[in-house]
Design a protein around this nucleic acid. Structure first.
Lengths: 158, 158
DNA sequence: CTCCGTGCAAACTTTTTGCAACGGG
DNA sequence: CCCGTTGCAAAAAGTTTGCACGGAG
């Protein structure tokens, strides 16, 4: 699961963008990589107490612009971040409607094919030029399975 | 396109929740209904200058809890709202990666079938109990088709 | 020496909440 | 009358920005 973090690719992308692959950025990439699922600010700061949020946000912006990180908007107000599909490969997400947690998820190839087809057929629709797709499977994660079903309140932490 | 707004269903739902279907709420429902796509606060307040945002937010919460309105998190920071699927029927969205605008979109039945199948097969995955799905087709809307492709900045307005 | 990156604090944006006044049933 | 609803203003939550310092190239 914890295969070596994609430091080289990230470094290349950053340097192409005229940015350095500093210690803080490496730590961020390692954290995103080992987390294995899209993380939010709470998770990041919980993992490194004292780390200033502004630096984290700034580094996330830099990494996003370099194409190394993707920012996702979950159901809640908090943004979530993960390594980009260019590093991680194409995938989708399971989203817990109770706590907002996300997990990566690969759909079966037939479904992926159907989504590709839908993207292409939508390419003509309404003047919209569709270029990609994003699927969320909503439900309850293991933690929330038994708690307040139907609710939308966030869970304690992580 | 502008079939009669679903006042009766909304009213029923609100009354079941012990809430009234006031003028402000009716106006909101009419606006959501005639807009025909998920709208954000800017669009709402632009349509009714002077209307206090707090009331709009509160009414949206009430309507959401009554199951008449759904809150969507677009790519940007602003939340978008539309009439719930219970009123509008099941559908998905085209999302402009440049300006954040969303349009409703029905996928072909085969794709919908594949999504259902994926939802069911994910039901077993990771302890996640998948109960529904949400598909976004990303691309450029008609307005943004020629402008700054690849960018993620919002467009002027509406 | 020159920039890029960092930390801190303050600003900003979006959304929520408290409180007093209003008005329909 | 009562209680849900409204408006205004203040607060909260999340994110962004300005500025000065420090370290890498």
């Amino acid at each position: 699961m914890t295969t070596t973090a994609p430091h080289d690719q990230v470094k290349d992308r950053l340097e192409q963008a005229g940015q350095r692959y500093t210690a803080g950025r490496q730590a961020l990439v390692v954290f995103l990589h080992t987390a294995g699922h899209p993380v939010d600010m709470n998770e990041i700061t919980a993992a490194s107490p004292g780390l200033p949020m502004s630096s984290v946000y700034r580094n996330l912006v830099v990494l996003e612009q370099a194409g190394a990180v993707t920012r996702l908007q979950g159901p809640g107000a908090l943004a979530r971040y993960e390594l980009s599909e260019e590093l991680l490969g194409h995938h989708h997400h399971l989203v817990c409607s109770s706590c907002g947690r996300m997990e990566d998820y690969q759909v079966p190839p037939e479904v992926e094919g159907a989504l590709l087809a839908a993207t292409r057929s939508a390419a003509s629709n309404n003047g919209f030029k569709a270029t990609g797709h994003r699927l969320e499977l909503r439900g309850l994660c293991a933690r929330c399975g038994q708690a307040t079903p139907g609710a939308t309140e966030p869970h304690p932490l992580t």
